[in-house]
């Protein structure tokens, strides 16, 4: 008899709280929770607002990216993570209706200062896109193009060396060294993406921005890129936007969660995926909305 009573008593209690998450309004969201600032910051962003015409896409985001760290930006579609990433090397300048407010600095230098050379900036802050986009040129030319126009090589020998080093760092050298003068577009998707990474690092950038670099790749090619990100972080600072939460968990040191244009939480990745501070982060990474 006693047992029957205890068994009855211990039916798990029904929960009613989670329904609120989907309708959670973030318009009054004031501050990012967690550790959004860093002691050894490479880039510092303060009170950044981004507008497309009169529509505000990014609301008051303040965050640091530390030297040699990999920071992952995650969030549901349309949360502003790509917009924010693109404002870090002024890619948004190419969009007429886009306006960026607030302060974005690298090593203390204001990236939106009128005196700043944007072409030079994009060499210092390189970018890798979702779809591999090699130039319709040879593998060699794809990598050599940047160093040439930025005058980084004095001689053909120098240039050869830069090309080889970049391809090696991108983990592609062994696969392409026999066919450097064949078209870059003839490579497989994963190889093309690594070629784009080689092209980005050929100009010795300080920061590499990656906008969903693996979403067009198969799992093996993805694993190679992820391994590469880990190696690259020894020499470069990396900010990566990804739709794959597992990828963010695997490759990044810190994870930033965006929601409806607000930066909700930044914390060490191991914390975000085991015990996030904010309820919205929790709801997103556990697959409760997206």
């Amino acid at each position: 008899m006693t047992q029957a009573i205890t068994a009855e008593k211990k039916k798990p209690a029904k929960k009613t709280t989670a329904k609120a998450v989907n309708s959670l309004d973030v318009s009054d969201h004031k501050a990012t929770v967690g550790k959004n600032f860093a002691d050894n910051a490479k880039m510092t962003m303060r009170n950044v607002n981004v507008f497309y015409d009169d529509k505000q896409a990014i609301h008051d985001v303040s965050v640091d990216i530390a030297k040699n760290e990999v920071i992952a930006m995650i969030g549901p579609s349309g949360c502003g993570k790509s917009t924010f990433l693109r404002s870090l090397n002024r890619m948004n300048d190419t969009v007429d209706i886009c306006r960026v407010e607030g302060q974005i600095c690298m090593d203390g230098e204001d990236l939106y200062s009128p005196k700043l050379d944007v072409v030079e900036l994009r060499a210092r802050v390189g970018m890798v896109f979702q779809k591999p986009n090699p130039f319709p040129k040879s593998i060699y030319e794809n990598v050599a193009y940047g160093p040439k126009i930025h005058g980084l090589a004095d001689s053909r020998v120098d240039l050869d060396e830069i090309v080889e080093n970049s391809l090696r760092k991108a983990g592609l050298w062994e696969e392409v060294k026999e066919r450097l003068h064949q078209a870059g577009t003839g490579l497989s998707g994963g190889q093309q993406q690594r070629l784009c990474i080689a092209r980005a690092i050929a100009v010795s950038p300080e920061v590499i921005l990656m906008d969903e670099p693996c979403s067009a790749l198969d799992p093996i090619a993805t694993a190679k890129i992820e391994e590469l990100i880990e190696e690259l972080s020894q020499n470069f600072t990396i900010a990566i936007v990804t739709h794959s939460m597992q990828q963010a968990a695997r490759v990044s040191h810190r994870t930033a969660y965006f929601h409806l244009g607000r930066l909700i939480e930044v914390n060490p990745t191991e914390q975000v995926f085991t015990m996030p501070e904010h309820q919205l982060t929790e709801a997103y990474i556990t697959g409760r909305f997206g």
Binding site: K11, P12, N22, F289
Partner: peptide, 25 residues
Amino acid sequence: KMSFENHIMKQFDEELEEIRTRLME
């Protein structure tokens, strides 16, 4: 405040509920 419901995948809710219930049993 714990809740193991409202996943986009309803099946996941059920699986978590299932292990809870079986642990209680």
